[in-house]
Simulated scan of single mutants.
Amino acid sequence: MIPIRSASTAQQVHDWLYRCVLRGDLLPGMRLSETEIAAQVGLSRQPVREAFIRLASDGLAEIRPQRGTYIGRISVRAVLSARLIREAVESDLVRMVAASRPDLTAMEAELELQARADAAGDVPAFVESDDRFHGAMAEAAGHPAVWQDLERLKAQMNRMRHLSMRVFDRSATIAQHRAVLTALQAGDGDAAETAIRTHLRQMLTELPEMVRTHPDYFTD
């Protein structure tokens, strides 16, 4: 874990821990120590305790009385729900983009960043660029707030993605993104919808495999 040198509030500690959980730096089942984290961030235990409570309210930690605070397991149900919502929403978004033919250079730039992150084996950078690719698509459709709403729904999905992208072929994800972008550039709504649905359904293959290989990381 990396110390927060500028943290001064429970919110900052929470935000740092939240990112660590999503990125897989803190894995399901790990115990969080108030004392150790307080020492790392240079704060008293009270704001750290408050951060733990907020993390638990996010569904990312479990506070066990008399035993401590532990990183929660990944909810399979939440992952599947977020994926389903994303497919429905993003299928509409790509049709809007295909019909309006806006500037898509931001999406193109993210594909280049993903290729570099893949080559470097930098999974966090890859997943962050993946998110920006989809966010740029919502922006191009004229609905940037939609992606912000989706972000709030997909914490468990993001945890799964950070784990799966360490294992599965990231170049396949890039190829799927390229198929989406190519269809959008051509103004082909049917092809764009097919491509985005194919891309988002990849998780239906990855999730069962991750549950099989890491059963202790997941819960129904």
Rank of each mutant, 00 (worst) to 15 (best):
E90Q: 07
R170T: 12
L26E: 00
R159N: 06
T69G: 06
S44Y: 02
L150H: 01
H14W: 13
G135K: 02
P65I: 11
D130H: 12
Q202A: 15
E209D: 12
T205R: 13
V48Y: 11
L181I: 14
R31H: 03
D58G: 01
M1I: 15
S171Y: 04
M160H: 14
A51H: 04
Y70N: 07
D131F: 04
T182K: 10
G142V: 12
L27R: 11
L60A: 03
A7S: 09
L60G: 09
A88C: 10
E110P: 01
G72S: 07
T205M: 11
H14V: 08
W147N: 14
G142L: 00
L27F: 06
R197L: 08
L17C: 07
R86W: 03
M160P: 00
L32T: 03
W16E: 13
Q40P: 03
A145D: 14
H14G: 06
E151V: 09
P28R: 00
R49H: 10
H143F: 14
S44L: 04
M157P: 10
S129V: 09
R73A: 08
R178S: 12
R116H: 08
T105E: 11
E34M: 08
T69M: 07
Q185M: 11
L84S: 13
P65V: 12
A61M: 05
I85L: 14
A78I: 01
S81E: 15
R101I: 03
R19D: 13
D122H: 01
T105S: 15
R23H: 11
E206G: 06
A175G: 05
L32Q: 02
M203K: 09
A119V: 00
H177Y: 09
I53A: 12
R132T: 08
H14T: 07
Q156P: 02
A141T: 04
L60I: 03
M160V: 15
P215S: 08
G72N: 04
D92K: 09
D122R: 01
I71R: 01
T194H: 15
R77A: 13
L163C: 03
S81A: 14
R31S: 12
S33C: 00
M210S: 08
F133E: 05
L93Q: 10
I53S: 12
L43M: 13
R159T: 13
I37T: 04
A61S: 02
